[in-house]
Design a protein around this nucleic acid. Sequence first.
DNA 1: CCCCCTCCGGTAAGCGCTTACATTCGCCAG
DNA 2: CTGGCGAATGTAAGCGCTTACCGGAGGGGG
Lengths: 344, 344
Amino acid sequence: MSRAAKIEDVASRAGVSVATVSRALRGLPHVSQKTREKVLRAAEELDYRPNPHAARLAAGRSGAVGVALPVLNSWFYANVLAGVEAVLAEEALDMHVVVVDGPEAIERFIAELPSLSKRVDGLVICDLHMPDQLWEDLAGGPIPVATIGVETGLFDSVTIDNVAAAAEAVGHLLDLGHRRIGLIGAGPEASADNESAALRRRGTIEALKARGLELPPQLDVAGSFSVAGGKEAAFEILDRAAPTAVFCLSDEMAIGAMWAAGEASLDVPRDLAVVGFDDQPIAEAVGLTTVRQPVSIMAARAANSVLSRLEGDEGPVQRHVMPTELQKRRSTDFRHLTHVHAHS
Amino acid sequence: MSRAAKIEDVASRAGVSVATVSRALRGLPHVSQKTREKVLRAAEELDYRPNPHAARLAAGRSGAVGVALPVLNSWFYANVLAGVEAVLAEEALDMHVVVVDGPEAIERFIAELPSLSKRVDGLVICDLHMPDQLWEDLAGGPIPVATIGVETGLFDSVTIDNVAAAAEAVGHLLDLGHRRIGLIGAGPEASADNESAALRRRGTIEALKARGLELPPQLDVAGSFSVAGGKEAAFEILDRAAPTAVFCLSDEMAIGAMWAAGEASLDVPRDLAVVGFDDQPIAEAVGLTTVRQPVSIMAARAANSVLSRLEGDEGPVQRHVMPTELQKRRSTDFRHLTHVHAHS
DNA sequence: CCCCCTCCGGTAAGCGCTTACATTCGCCAG
DNA sequence: CTGGCGAATGTAAGCGCTTACCGGAGGGGG
């Protein structure tokens, strides 16, 4: 295998200068049709591949877009990634994944931001929380950014109305007659690092208040966004407050809660109604009532925002608020409840 | 914001040459302790960040590792990604994700391979199938590769014993007395694009044969590796051959099959036993018997293989075959017939 | 006291592109 | 026929870093 061809090789084979090759290969103007074909043929024959690093160095662009998210192996974030990937692939852009989990990773992310800005042309940031000052620094930086799940006012964002979505979910439970409703996934301290959770908690509280109810501390527990986390939190809440329903901030947690209910010999939904959040495919399979959010569409929209900024769009910051929809299923099916809660 | 500092700025501020700065910053020898400190201080003061593209161009290394996989939003691949990411993050390497789904994406992947080789230093390839010739080309290429789920003999690989794992799963069903066992996820044509599925199918057939049984075509159906795919395939198989058990090649499919059973008013496991593959957390939550494979450990191992090759390890090709373990749960529990929650 | 060897550190030549600017080439109006 | 004017192409200066190679400075043995 001879060493890889460089632009110079193509140039001499096509009998033109490197500048012409560069222009021809990138479809720039000021190249005659004939020359362009000659160049393309030469490149083809040599199986020429431009060296991306050289191109990036010279042009100052990197041909890559970064995606920052807190974890990879949850349904939600995997789908965010998939959504972003789909649009980047379309544009032949590289996808650079950065996982920012936990405080010290955020620390590192922040420290590396200037460096990151040099290696990607744009950035999609999902559910990351950092001081306002740093967002502003980012906004002052060289690359366009779009956020998912966070609203800074500085960048294009795509979010859902977490408050309303949670209120709808909890309202559904209230309509069914539930009065002791547990919330799993936020906890009183929520907001520091999980804005969505905090907002959903607020929606929950508002829905309760609208009926003259409160969210007592023992029905308001945090927990990791996983099956195990949901299970654990559910056990805790069942133990402390005997709720008739729980609203879990992710489907994984909800499934964990259903698991816990089963282990506690509680029937879902008769003894415990469960509502989740996300509507991953498994939710429908197990009959879980949940809030659907259009994850990959949201991700795609964020990616597209970055792309259009990259293409020079200087318009005002766009805030996309995507629709959510409560999917009512067996886990809250009122027909199982009529007898039990008829007059509560 | 003044323009970003370059190495030259650091050099003059520290009163040394750029060469010394480069050496000092990268921890190379031939720099006295005193000089190194001086340089580090200058770099710190200027908030200097090396331009990765320049570094890569000059050094020929890219500081990034690629990960190629067929999809992002399935539990298995999301965990592969997470596993790889964890080790790359440790080494401060960038992760470059390439999704290769479907024939024309493979086509494109192959076409872009030479180019990809220039932008990453190494590559982890997961469950990709392409002609031997191309694997050999890759092996002749400049970057180390490790594979997950495929065994080429040319690269370090990490796999599981799919045949044995499937045989164990099916053996379990046979031990329970099942005789009409459906297989979902492979199908008679398997192998073209999904080697793992083909091997698991072989294991299934072998286990059956060991008991003098066969896998009739109507019990041997393909299907997409998703909840919906599993559901659909299950309906088909239930309709055509009334099995007493199904072995699904992923947990998602198994959950889809359980869903289908429910819709067909069949009790799991009484009327239909279900076995999955992967053992994602949800499997335990829903009591699904399944084959556990250590996904993120496998991914991490593959990533580490690439890293050690990158560090110059020239040893012989390593083939890691990771252990699997059948997790027996309610979905195949014959005792379930009498005790509804006889499960820990 | 001189020489050679070892460390440090500096000089400068790239790495393979992009692009501002210069140059050439047609072609048409005068 | 010739000057002029775009369009096409070439020239060459970087982009910011790495590294081969070279010189200089100590230090110890002869």
